[in-house]
Design a protein around this nucleic acid. Structure first.
Lengths: 202, 202
DNA sequence: ACAGGAATTGAACACCGATCAATAAAATGC
DNA sequence: GCATTTTATTGATCGGTGTTCAATTCCTGT
């Protein structure tokens, strides 16, 4: 077959990314292969290489979408309450919810290694930092409430620490590496406990 | 070549596991392959399959050793102080140190997926729980010091939360997914901050 | 010394990501 | 409307992987 022009390059990329994401959700990174993606969108491998430089590129672009989606979920959660402490808890719940609903894609974001060379695309950092800013804002709003000795630590630093911690709890819970019961409810309790302890002194 | 009997099965496994660990340390999971391991220990692939059922089996056994080594490091750290708060900080420092020294092998422990079927071997859980017990013990020792209202949360629950949090900080720091500066010193500060906040109310 | 068994190999298989000449259809010029 | 150029698409191909297994070669017990 020669050229068909059924889809533009953008459409082809869209199809591929969509199907790739589905593939990952179904069977983890391991299930993601160029041939399988091509088959599912009705093309052959060669066509994918017109749009993606290689498999890593495809993965990075899927990850980028996942991060955008995650950021959206967290922003929606943050908008649901003006009360800082409650907002933090909503953020945690949203993060855990996302990790549990899109476990495979979420893991891929954090576990994929790109080969030796250069780092993730700059847009990654943008979204990551936006997430940190959501947490930092909540922490900043929470801090003045506790009068008295103001903390030496900036909300930005605190946000990084707190969110890394939340991330760790979600990751171990979701991957079952805790060796303990990992019910949805118990994990939420753990997160509440973490935030409680973390914010109990400003 | 026929049988040589240069090594017993155990020795062969030992050689393979040792070289596999080195391979991972050098180039991550990606660098670990049956053929390469075989080449390095002076055998061919076939021989490896006398000792390991497949690559996943090899990986799991490398991971098991890593976990044992990690547990040893943490136990040594815990033995270095009887003062609970200080002991917690030593445990954190030891964990971070291990993650930074053996980054690739450490990541493999948490990131490796074994295919669909059964979970990690039971010895895994044993060591994992031993680690949690170290943390729980320190927390238990720390709790009575703060008199007044005793916490409703058991030290075991607290240990799981705290250690998951510590794990998250170490992981994001070590993999550079934070998007912020990830110097050794700053990460240790983050861990101290986390433990501080976490234990400031018993 | 011999037979039986066990260790070791190397070729094979099926799959993967990646490349690229060949091809067929659309786009363009006339 | 026809010829030419351009471009999308294919499918065969390459080197690599994990895995299997018949064949080989040596050790071991008698």
């Amino acid at each position: 077959m020669g050229r068909r022009n059924l889809h533009t390059r953008e459409e082809l990329a869209e199809l591929a990314l969509h199907e790739a994401a589905k593939l990952v959700d179904e069977g983890g990174v391991q299930a993601l292969g160029m041939r399988e993606v091509a088959r599912r969108i009705g093309y052959t491998v060669g066509s994918l290489y017109m749009v993606f430089t290689n498999l890593d590129d495809l993965i990075v672009q899927v990850n980028e979408r996942t991060v955008v989606q995650l950021r959206g979920s967290l922003e929606a959660a943050a908008a649901r309450s003006r009360e800082p402490a409650r907002r933090l808890r909503l953020l945690c719940a949203a993060y855990l919810d996302f990790a549990q609903r899109h476990t495979q894609r979420w893991r891929m974001v954090f576990e994929h290694r790109l080969p030796a060379g250069q780092p993730a695309p700059p847009t990654y950092r943008g979204h990551t930092q936006a997430i940190f800013r959501l947490v930092a804002a909540a922490l900043r709003d929470a801090a003045p409430a506790r009068a008295g000795a103001p903390s030496r630590d900036t909300p930005e630093e605190l946000a990084v620490v707190l969110w890394s911690a939340v991330h760790g709890v979600c990751m171990l819970a979701v991957t079952g590496k805790l060796g303990v019961s990992d019910t949805r409810a118990s994990t939420r309790r753990m997160l509440d406990l973490l935030v409680d302890r973390f914010t109990s002194r400003g």
